[in-house]
Amino acid sequence: MKSRRSFSAKTYAAVNYAALGLLSLFTLYPFWYEAASSFSSSRAITSGEVFLWPVEFNTDAYKRLLDDGQLLVSAKNTVLVTVVGTLLNMAMTVLAAYPLSKKRLMGRGGLLLFITFTMLFVSGMIPNFILIKTLGLINSYWSLWLPALISTYNLFVMKSFFEGLPEEIDESASIDGANDLAILAKIILPLSKPILAALSLFYAVGWWNSYFQVLLYITRSTKQTLMVKLYQMINQVDASLLNSAGGSEGASQALLTPEAIKAAAIVLSVTPILCVYPFLQRHFVKGVLIGSVKG
């Protein structure tokens, strides 16, 4: 009886492991393909010879990309935008989510409706631009950070997480005389590591990939971010622009980026942010680990 059971548990685990492994190979492929392409010759890519491994291996694409000093400047800018942006986001989201998770708060329903409304009714590009201009934020990174201080989506996720924490915790703390700020800082936040990690990741990825806002508000080349630089290389020619009925710049005006360089630009833009999650992941397993060590 016992051995049968452990046998079925083993098959169960094996199937699970295998299925996950297979799926992850599927999802890795696009990146793998781009990485292989970035070390191949553009000729081999166009000729459809690259599939799993680089063909005509070379590192010219990376050399060309890294030769441009602007890329390093923009990478630094992106790190700054991402780190500061994420910190501001997390601070504001906690400030919003914690009080709103308290059922006892007067006016809570109204406030939540007030906030939900902005999640769906989004204002257009032009009024936003005028606002940023009026505040004098053009060409300052505050033009990116301030309008995006809170993602309402993330706010609701965090609020619902706080609501899921056992109520006895802060009840007992408030009996001990701690005020709400102290409860939040000393008790709630340490308990919320998984969600803090997850939302930091969401925010950071958003900042890392932010593109359109940067185009709109940051005109100074020295403040440009990595994504804008790389996008310029990847999407240099938009077919729809070339074929506008009203006249176009002509085939020879636009510089076509070789395939290998596009691939290298993609690899360079994706790799750093892919590496963030593994660091955050350890905050995910704390709770589970205690209970499942003996698995």
């Binding site: 924490l165 995910f284 709770g287």
Partner: peptide, 9 residues
């Protein structure tokens, strides 16, 4: 996964 991490072991 974040939610699962918070289930009481």
């Amino acid at each position: 996964l974040a939610a699962m991490a918070n289930i009481d072991p």
